[in-house]
Every structure is written in structure tokens, then in C-alpha cells.
Amino acid sequence: MFIASNIFIFYITYIIKVKYPININITKRNKVNNFKSPLNIDIISIIYGSLLGDAYAEKRSEGKATRIVFYQESSHDDYLLYLHSLIANLGYCNTTIPKITTRLVKNGKIRKVISFSTWSYDLFNSIHDKWYIPNPIKGRSNFIKIIPKDLELNLTPLALAIWIMDDGSKVGKGLKLSTNSFTHDELLFLISILKNKYNLTCSIQSAGTNNQQHIYIWVESMANLVNIVKPYIIPSMKYKFGNYM
């Protein structure tokens, strides 16, 4: 099992306690000097956990660099600001605090959202290649998100915590992970990783819509789950774990 360094856990704890400070001030891409530095496990964990949720990797054209885009509804702005502080302090995005914007959704409703993206990196191209395949259906998105084969290696406790904060929700005394966009076989792969790596007992349940399913983490595994992810969970997201946290 992956164990985060004491230094990084201390760093995250510090950020949580002082409400997500950004300790550097980089607002322009030309001030960054890490474009050729190898990606460390912390940024990979954050990206992998986020891609399991609502984030997406964007490669605008062949041969171009990739950026990672993060977004949440404004009701979860606290979490996104926390995520932004982690990535900004690691030096992978503009340090300007994201602002709430609006977008038009179905039925003419206006929804408030908050979003930000990393800078574009050639080093992120390999992540895009692992997470996406070309969409064979014309007239739709150019790519389809898939579960990468190396997920077990990179589903660290930090990545698991990010995934839950991004796309998890309390159901009874257990926890649901929204995985509607993935196939049944991919969900089987996901629950096998959760079992093999963290001894979490999970099952696949219908999401109430044809061909859409989610993963349910059993009550019996909740105490173990909390023990794994607790160092990374911000206060506003503890409600997802009920009385276990």
C-alpha cells in the first residue's frame, strides 16, 4: 500500500488548518520552470483522483500539450479552492484564486460553477493517452474517457480521497462513487483495485438510468476507508463519511 510522506501530509494538514493559502505568486506561464521536470507522485495522485471524477484532460490538437481542467458547482467551492491551493503550491497552475461563474444548463436553468485549469504540459500527454481513446462517433466529443491500466499503481490514498471528495456521496451508512460514464467492465476493474489494494468491499449498483451504474462501498469497509483517506479530507467534506469521521 502506498503511504504518503510525512512531509506531504504535514503540508496538506497545514493548508487545511489555515484555509488553503497559496505560498507562491505565479500568474504567468513564463515564470514556471518545471515544464521538463518529472511528475512526482503528488501531482499524479491529484490528477488521477480528479479524472475519476469530474475533471478532464484537454488536448486541443495532435502534437500539442495537455492541460487538466477542474470544475465543481459553487456549492462545493471550498473543495475546489483546496484543490487549487494544492496544485498552485506544487507549481502547476496560475496562482490567481478561481472565481465563481455561471453557465446555462438544460431547461434554461443557470448554474453557478467554479473552475480552473493547469498550464499545458507535454508531460501530461502521457496521462491523456492513458485516460482517453478516440471517439468513433462523429459529431460528438473527440475522445472518450476510460479507466487507465496503470490505475492501481497511481490510486494512492491521496488520489482516493480526491475521488471521494469530487464524486462521492453518503448513502445510508455507506458511500457511493458516481461512475456513470464508465462501462460495467471498467467498474469491475475499479472494485477489484479497491479490494486488492485497500481491502474495501464494494459492489456495483444501478444509477437509476439505463447503462449507468455506480460503485457502493459497503458499511463494513467504512472504518477502514476513513483510516486510509482521513489525512486528506477537508472539514467541509467530512459529512460524506457520516459518523465514521
Rank of each mutant, 00 (worst) to 15 (best):
2 F>G: 02
6 N>I: 05
7 I>N: 04
12 I>K: 06
12 I>N: 09
20 Y>E: 01
21 P>Y: 08
22 I>D: 00
31 K>L: 12
32 V>N: 10
35 F>R: 13
36 K>F: 02
42 D>G: 00
47 I>H: 03
48 Y>L: 08
48 Y>F: 11
49 G>H: 00
49 G>T: 05
51 L>D: 00
56 Y>K: 11
57 A>I: 10
57 A>H: 07
62 E>P: 10
62 E>Y: 09
62 E>N: 11
65 A>W: 00
67 R>F: 00
69 V>D: 03
70 F>D: 05
71 Y>M: 03
72 Q>I: 05
74 S>Q: 02
81 L>K: 15
82 Y>H: 12
85 S>W: 11
89 N>M: 02
89 N>T: 01
91 G>L: 00
91 G>F: 00
91 G>C: 02
94 N>C: 04
95 T>N: 15
100 I>Y: 04
104 L>I: 14
109 K>H: 13
116 F>M: 09
119 W>R: 04
122 D>F: 15
123 L>R: 15
124 F>M: 04
124 F>P: 07
124 F>D: 02
128 H>T: 06
132 Y>G: 07
133 I>Q: 13
134 P>C: 11
137 I>N: 12
138 K>I: 11
139 G>K: 05
139 G>F: 06
150 D>T: 04
158 L>H: 14
159 A>Y: 13
162 I>V: 15
166 D>M: 06
168 G>L: 03
174 G>L: 07
175 L>R: 04
175 L>V: 09
177 L>G: 10
179 T>P: 03
180 N>T: 08
184 H>D: 12
185 D>C: 09
185 D>Q: 11
185 D>E: 10
187 L>Y: 09
188 L>H: 10
190 L>I: 14
191 I>T: 05
194 L>F: 02
194 L>T: 01
197 K>R: 11
198 Y>I: 00
201 T>R: 01
202 C>A: 12
209 T>R: 12
212 Q>H: 14
216 Y>W: 08
220 E>Q: 10
221 S>V: 05
224 N>K: 15
226 V>W: 12
229 V>Q: 03
230 K>C: 07
230 K>Y: 11
232 Y>N: 01
232 Y>H: 11
234 I>G: 08
237 M>S: 15
238 K>N: 05
244 Y>N: 06
